[in-house]
Write a protein that binds this DNA or RNA. Structure first.
Lengths: 345, 345
DNA sequence: CTGAAAGCGCTAACAC
DNA sequence: GTGTTAGCGCTTTCAG
């Protein structure tokens, strides 16, 4: 019933535990004859080393914790998949926790994972001042590597590693794409400006406008709540004042707000990619369900996952994977074109 | 740097390890005064018990392994989210492995998780004869509970627990919905019949037809490869022979094939929900991007996750959660309506 | 009420 | 080459 131990094997073979251990691990001198005898016997049994005991002795769990707000988000599950691929090759496994957007749950998991002594932690926190909580400090005091994804705490310790999106570049790319298609009167629907993602994307919009000698009209800047209803309301507002403040294109700076904005446009009897050009942010339609297809800037999830995976290995085993060159990285968004943008003129 | 141990604490307090252990775990007699002294001291330190050591002693890891082919699939990440919610309340954490549809990787993970001595395993295997591999047997010999999801091996041991979809009922529901809308000439695009999901869904189609005294026309049954291109080709075939074998509606028995079929219909200049009614299988468009919206039968992912979670707890701690009543469960699909079905007559 | 001691399964000096 | 031993951090008898 209970799995066999080295001791069991050793007893049956009339050998010492250490000898068996040596052949199992393939390290240390063992006479070829004995080695074979052990190997043959092992083949008939079903011995699998107990990693828990190994962990206790070696003081490393060979596990990496991942804490995130919602596993259903495409962004997260893709990243995890990549991280898994990269680190599992080095023998690490992933302990995953979904906080369901709850700070309380996030803290509980932070504790639980520390108890389990994860060798490193990847976290997309919703608790933006982790430096102040003892929860994260435990890891830091410990020297346990932490990598933040999606967002990162303001705290500027060099212990704070992250891989996040370059929001400025992303929205610049979006707006530039509209401009390249001949649009000049461009509205933006951004998220709350007190959140970095909201603020930075809005700045990106302004940067692109100014780089093209266009003046962002304050009336064409709408601020929503990152959700579909926010996008809907913002779009409504923009449309209602359209005779006074005309625009031919809009950049919506989050996925859900894009969904809402599209609905508002449709309900106003207008056609996307004809009456109004739309470029979204991180809109996922890999199945190609939307007609017209939605142009959007997107985060390179695979790249993020790979970078996080590699950074983990470098942080955990620098002697093997080299010291990480950069532990604060901002990845670039890419353009996914779609028929929601029409050429002007 | 290294986290403190009971020993460290005990030494500083001039107490024995066992006394400190008792107050940390709140079990066993400790004089109220000493208890307070320990508690006060602990508050100033930052002691977190080492779960690895606890696990070794207790012979349980408080972790549950999950092995699945692709974390990006909505079906899986929702289930995991629910399982996590349920079992984490009981102190378990999830070790997750994405095999990327590879049998070899699946086996490697099966081994790794056994090494880590997971207390239970949830698996969506792609290796349909696990009974023959020693990989799964190790767990079974061990008494380690295994729950299969999505599909299950043919092997009919009572050790094989599963929570899977009732495919017959799902396709029956789909076809019945078409019939209820007045359709009688109904085509089906099913997956390969040597896979249970392909076969059972096709049977469900036949059952619904027969229950309504309709004769499934063999020419209206197309078999594809479960992927978008398969769905596309099948739909093409059906459309090309439509004058000889007319139909007004089609049930496509997998998500990706539905996507392909929709494209084929569009490219033939026909309109879904007008010229042809379509009901898909497990089509996910929670963002509501598709127009018209796609009617589909869907798996109740949340229910599956909850059932698996509860079953795990019951299998692991029957004294606390009661013995599981049923360990082979088939959940029912539900209907998600959409404008891809038009009423006939 | 508290402490000493054994042992979970494994690794790694260190002897022989 | 192989065995003995100590010890990773914890829980849990068993003495005192």
């Amino acid at each position: 019933m209970k799995p066999e131990t080295l001791k069991d094997i050793a007893k049956e073979l009339n050998l010492s535990i250490s000898t068996v251990s040596r052949v199992v691990n393939g390290k240390g001198y063992v006479k070829e004859e004995t080695r074979q005898r052990v190997l043959d016997f092992l083949a008939t049994r079903n011995y699998v080393p107990n990693e828990i005991a190994r962990s206790l002795k070696a003081q490393e769990s060979m596990t990496i914790g991942i804490i995130l707000p919602d596993l259903r988000e495409v962004y997260f599950n893709r990243i995890i998949k990549e991280i898994d691929r990269v680190v599992s090759a080095a023998g690490y496994m992933l302990l995953i926790a979904d906080t369901n957007e709850s700070k309380k749950t996030e803290r509980r998991y932070l504790d639980l994972m520390f108890q389990k002594r994860v060798d490193a932690l990847v976290i997309s926190t919703i608790d933006m001042d982790p430096a102040e909580t003892p929860y994260v400090e435990r890891y830091l005091n410990n020297g346990t590597p932490i990598i933040f994804i999606d967002n990162h705490p303001k705290l500027d310790s060099d212990q704070v590693n992250f891989v996040v999106l370059d929001n400025h570049q992303a929205s610049r790319l979006a707006v530039q794409t509209l401009i390249d298609n001949g649009h000049r009167d461009i509205a933006v629907i951004a998220g709350y400006l007190d959140e970095p993602t909201g603020y930075e994307r809005m700045e990106g919009y302004c940067q692109a406008m100014e780089a093209n000698d266009l003046h962002p009209d304050p009336a064409l800047i709408a601020i929503g709540n990152f959700k579909a209803d926010g996008g809907y309301r913002c779009m409504e507002e923009l449309l209602l004042q359209r005779d006074v403040h005309p625009f031919t294109a809009v950049h919506v700076a989050s996925e859900m707000m894009t969904i809402g904005a599209l609905r508002a446009i449709r309900e106003h009897g207008l056609t996307v990619g004809q009456d109004i050009a739309v470029i979204g942010f991180d809109v996922h339609d890999d199945l190609g369900l939307a007609t017209p297809t939605i142009a959007t800037v997107r985060q390179p999830e695979e790249e993020v996952g790979q970078r996080v995976g590699l950074m983990l290995l470098q942080l955990l085993r620098p002697e093997k994977y080299g010291a990480p060159e950069e532990t604060k990285v901002r990845v670039k968004a890419y353009l996914q074109s779609g028929s929601s943008i029409h050429k002007l003129q």
